[in-house]
Measured scan of single mutants.
Amino acid sequence: LKTAGVNTTDKEMEVLHLRNVSFEDAGEYTCLAGNSIGLSHHSAWLTVLEALEERPAVMTSPLYLEIIIYCTGAFLISCMVGSVIVYKMKSGTKKSDFHSQMAVHKLAKSIPLRRQVTVSADSSASMNSGVLLVRPSRLSSSGTPMLAGVSEYELPEDPRWELPRDRLVLGKPLGEGCFGQVVLAEAIGLDKDKPNRVTKVAVKMLKSDATEKDLSDLISEMEMMKMIGKHKNIINLLGACTQDGPLYVIVEYASKGNLREYLQARRPPGLEYCYNPSHNPEEQLSSKDLVSCAYQVARGMEYLASKKCIHRDLAARNVLVTEDNVMKIADFGLARDIHHIDYYKKTTNGRLPVKWMAPEALFDRIYTHQSDVWSFGVLLWEIFTLGGSPYPGVPVEELFKLLKEGHRMDKPSNCTNELYMMMRDCWHAVPSQRPTFKQLVEDLDRIVALTSNQEYLDLSMPLDQYSPSFPDTRSSTCSSGEDSVFSHEPLPEEPCLPRHPAQLANGGLKRR
Score class of each variant (00 low, 15 high):
residue 166 D to E: 05
residue 168 L to M: 12
residue 172 K to Q: 10
residue 172 K to I: 14
residue 172 K to N: 13
residue 173 P to L: 10
residue 173 P to R: 13
residue 176 E to K: 12
residue 176 E to A: 05
residue 178 C to G: 02
residue 180 G to R: 04
residue 181 Q to H: 09
residue 182 V to L: 06
residue 184 L to W: 13
residue 185 A to P: 01
residue 188 I to L: 11
residue 191 D to V: 15
residue 193 D to Y: 06
residue 196 N to S: 04
residue 201 V to L: 10
residue 201 V to G: 06
residue 201 V to E: 04
residue 206 L to M: 06
residue 206 L to F: 02
residue 207 K to M: 12
residue 213 K to E: 14
residue 214 D to A: 08
residue 214 D to H: 01
residue 215 L to M: 07
residue 216 S to L: 09
residue 218 L to P: 02
residue 220 S to P: 04
residue 220 S to T: 09
residue 222 M to V: 14
residue 225 M to L: 14
residue 227 M to T: 12
residue 231 H to D: 14
residue 233 N to D: 13
residue 234 I to L: 09
residue 236 N to D: 15
residue 237 L to Q: 13
residue 239 G to A: 06
residue 239 G to E: 15
residue 242 T to S: 12
residue 243 Q to H: 08
residue 243 Q to L: 12
residue 243 Q to K: 07
residue 246 P to H: 14
residue 250 I to N: 01
residue 252 E to V: 08
residue 256 K to N: 15
residue 257 G to S: 10
residue 258 N to T: 03
residue 261 E to Q: 04
residue 261 E to K: 07
residue 264 Q to R: 09
residue 264 Q to K: 07
residue 265 A to V: 15
residue 268 P to L: 03
residue 269 P to T: 14
residue 270 G to V: 11
residue 273 Y to H: 12
residue 274 C to S: 09
residue 276 N to T: 14
residue 277 P to L: 06
residue 277 P to T: 08
residue 281 P to Q: 09
residue 282 E to G: 06
residue 284 Q to P: 12
residue 286 S to F: 09
residue 290 L to M: 05
residue 290 L to Q: 08
residue 290 L to P: 01
residue 297 V to A: 07
residue 302 E to A: 15
residue 304 L to M: 15
residue 309 C to S: 07
residue 310 I to K: 00
residue 311 H to R: 01
residue 312 R to Q: 00
residue 314 L to R: 01
residue 319 V to D: 00
residue 324 D to N: 12
residue 326 V to L: 14
residue 327 M to R: 03
residue 328 K to E: 07
residue 329 I to R: 15
residue 331 D to A: 00
residue 334 L to F: 02
residue 336 R to W: 07
residue 337 D to G: 12
residue 339 H to N: 10
residue 341 I to V: 05
residue 342 D to Y: 12
residue 358 A to P: 04
residue 361 A to P: 03
residue 362 L to V: 03
residue 362 L to I: 08
residue 363 F to Y: 11
residue 366 I to F: 08
residue 367 Y to S: 07
residue 369 H to R: 14
residue 370 Q to L: 14
residue 371 S to G: 03
residue 378 V to A: 03
residue 378 V to L: 01
residue 380 L to R: 04
residue 380 L to M: 12
residue 381 W to C: 14
residue 381 W to G: 08
residue 383 I to L: 14
residue 385 T to P: 03
residue 385 T to N: 08
residue 386 L to P: 01
residue 387 G to A: 11
residue 387 G to C: 03
residue 389 S to F: 03
residue 389 S to P: 02
residue 390 P to S: 02
residue 392 P to S: 00
residue 394 V to A: 03
residue 395 P to T: 05
residue 398 E to D: 05
residue 399 L to P: 14
residue 401 K to N: 10
residue 403 L to R: 02
residue 406 G to C: 00
residue 406 G to A: 03
residue 408 R to C: 00
residue 408 R to G: 00
residue 409 M to V: 00
residue 410 D to A: 05
residue 412 P to H: 00
residue 414 N to K: 08
residue 419 L to Q: 11
residue 419 L to P: 00
residue 421 M to V: 08
residue 425 D to V: 08
residue 426 C to F: 00
residue 426 C to S: 00
residue 427 W to G: 00
residue 429 A to G: 06
residue 429 A to V: 13
residue 431 P to A: 07
residue 434 R to G: 00
residue 435 P to H: 00
residue 436 T to S: 07
residue 436 T to N: 11
residue 442 E to Q: 10
residue 443 D to H: 05
residue 445 D to Y: 14
residue 445 D to G: 12
residue 445 D to H: 14
residue 447 I to L: 12
residue 449 A to T: 12
residue 451 T to P: 14
residue 453 N to I: 09
residue 455 E to K: 05
residue 457 L to Q: 14
residue 458 D to Y: 07
residue 462 P to H: 08
residue 469 S to I: 09
residue 469 S to G: 07
residue 470 F to V: 09
residue 472 D to E: 09
residue 474 R to L: 11
residue 479 S to A: 15
residue 480 S to L: 13
residue 481 G to E: 14
residue 482 E to D: 04
residue 483 D to H: 15
